[in-house]
Each structure stands twice: as structure tokens, then as C-alpha cells.
């Protein structure tokens, strides 16, 4: 596991992505805080959010907008092995392939936590002054908000783990990144809104990975903007759903990719 961790931090990718994540979230967080505050002031904020809800939604951005970053770094941890054929050396030193995959999943957690801390910090630093100065307040001492912040960090780490599991299923690096971008930026948001529009399917939407993550945090930008039709899972269930995604993908990876001949 130490080895897997060293693999992650001995290349440049991890901090390049981390910087991108921080910059991106700071920008979006600041911009969104500003627009919510301004919208509220202009009294056109029927759909918009006020007070603690506004703060929670913005702080929850780490997950709502930023989750693509831990997913990508997680998937890279696996796909890089195949792209550069380091998988050969990795399996030479650890021929037990289940152990190899497990180590990779666990080793990604610390980095995922770091991503979570940095991402959450970036959002808070950019948006809290706006909310405090122009809006209803930053609410940084509110217990609910602190929960959102902490859980955002946990969720980011879980996303990184799901990324590793996904990478073990789809080992082609380019394909993995394309699929992650397509699903996170396009397929899932649409699916959540679309499923939410049909009563019969409404219950399904909350089991989508992004919705489950929102459920774990307990705040959803997407959920609150579409009129609150999409209900979220309770936290414990949301956590289980996220772990299940990681577990199922990893199991598929273990019995397809990692059962094949290497090389």
C-alpha cells in the first residue's frame, strides 16, 4: 500500500490536477456565491437560495462540481499502469492481484482526502467572504455547515476510490477520462433531472452516484435548483451506495482486467 501511495505522489499529475481543482472550485464558488447573493438582492430569487441553504449549497460544490477531479486522479492511478505497462512490474512484486487492487483502492484514500480538504478550502475561501459581505452570512460556525464541509472531504476521497475501481474496469486511459467527463458533466445531470420528472422513476435518480454523494453531504445544488423534486438518500444509505459503486466496479475489474494475461 505504501508502494501504491508512492506511485501516486511521485509523478506530477497529482498536484497539477490538485491545483486545477482548487482554482476551478474557487472560481465557481466565488462566482456562484456572488450570483446567488445578487439574485437575492434583486428580489427575483424564488428559485434561489437564502441563508444557510445558500451557504450549504455553495459549500457542497466540492462534490457537485468538483467530483470529476478525484474521479480522474483515481482512474489515472489504475490506467497509468496499463498505459505505461508498469502493471508488469507491479504484479511481479505483488502477484496476488486482489491484494494489488485493494492496496490501490486504499492508497488513493489519503490523496482523496487531501483533494477534499483543498477543494473545500478553495470553495470556502472564495465564497465565504462574498456570502458574509453581501449575503445573509457565511454560517461557518453553524453545525450543519461544518457537517457539510467535513462530509465534502469524505465524499471526495470516496470519489477517488470509485475512480480507481472504474479504472480497473476501463483500462484505456483516454477512454476512461472521456467516459468520466461524459458521465459526470452530461449523462448524470441529465439523467437526474429526467428521472426526477417521472414519478415512477423518481426513486431511481437518488441511487445515481452523483445523487448518492449529494445525499451523503446532505446538500445538492442540482437538487435544490430543479425545484426539490429529487429527494436524496439518507446519509447512511448514501454512504453505502457510494461504497457499493466502488465495490462493484472493483469486483468487475478484478474478474475481467485482472484475470487476464498481462503483457
Amino acid at each position: 500500500m505504501v508502494a501504491e501511495y508512492r506511485k501516486l505522489v511521485t509523478t506530477r499529475m497529482w498536484w497539477v490536477l490538485l491545483l486545477a481543482l482548487a482554482a476551478y472550485l474557487a472560481f465557481i464558488g466565488g462566482a456562484l456565491a456572488f450570483s446567488i447573493v445578487v439574485a437575492a438582492e434583486n428580489e427575483q430569487g424564488d428559485l434561489m437560495l437564502h441563508g444557510v441553504d445558500a451557504a450549504a449549497s455553495i459549500y457542497g460544490l466540492t462534490n457537485a462540481i468538483g467530483y470529476v477531479f478525484p474521479l480522474v486522479i483515481g482512474s489515472l492511478a489504475m490506467t497509468t499502469e496499463f498505459r505505461h505497462q508498469t502493471i508488469t512490474q507491479s504484479l511481479l512484486v505483488e502477484p496476488r492481484r486482489g491484494v494489488f487492487l485493494g492496496a490501490k483502492l486504499l492508497a488513493t484514500l489519503p490523496l482523496g482526502l487531501l483533494y477534499g480538504v483543498v477543494a473545500t478550502a478553495a470553495v470556502v475561501l472564495a465564497s465565504a467572504p462574498v456570502l458574509a459581505g453581501l449575503g445573509d452570512g457565511a454560517f461557518l460556525t453553524e453545525p450543519d455547515i461544518i457537517e457539510v464541509l467535513l462530509l465534502s472531504v469524505v465524499v471526495t476521497a470516496l470519489w477517488a476510490m470509485i475512480g480507481v475501481a472504474f479504472g480497473s474496469v476501463l483500462t484505456n486511459q483516454v477512454a476512461a477520462i472521456v467516459v468520466i467527463l461524459a458521465v459526470t458533466q452530461f449523462v448524470e445531470p441529465i439523467a437526474r433531472v429526467a428521472l426526477g420528472a417521472f414519478d415512477a422513476l423518481d426513486g431511481v435518480a437518488k441511487f445515481l452516484p452523483g445523487a448518492a454523494a449529494d445525499g451523503l453531504i446532505g446538500a445538492s445544488l442540482l437538487g435544490s435548483m430543479d425545484g426539490g423534486s429529487a429527494e436524496l438518500l439518507p446519509r447512511w444509505a448514501a454512504l453505502l451506495v457510494m461504497l457499493a459503486y466502488a465495490g462493484i466496479l472493483a469486483a468487475i475489474g478484478r474478474f475481467t482486467t485482472l484475470r487476464r494475461d498481462i503483457g
Binding site: 500500500m1 505504501v2 508502494a3 508512492r6 506511485k7 511521485t10 509523478t11 506530477r12 499529475m13 497509468t80 505505461h84 505497462q85 508498469t86 508488469t88 512490474q89 507491479s90 511481479l92 512484486v93 505483488e94 503483457g263
Partner: peptide, 25 residues
């Protein structure tokens, strides 16, 4: 064992490559 001369991560230094595998060895 050394199987192929190409299976290194190009972004890692030579020393880091060894250090990555050292714990499991």
C-alpha cells in the same frame, strides 16, 4: 526480473521508480 525496457512511467525519476517498488520488495 526485468522483462521489457519500456515499462516505466516516463514522468517518474529513476530513483523514484525504484522507491515505488521498494516497500513491496
Amino acid at each position: 526480473a526485468a522483462l521489457e525496457a519500456s515499462s516505466f512511467h516516463p514522468g517518474r525519476t529513476g530513483l523514484a521508480h525504484l522507491e515505488v517498488f521498494a516497500p513491496q520488495v
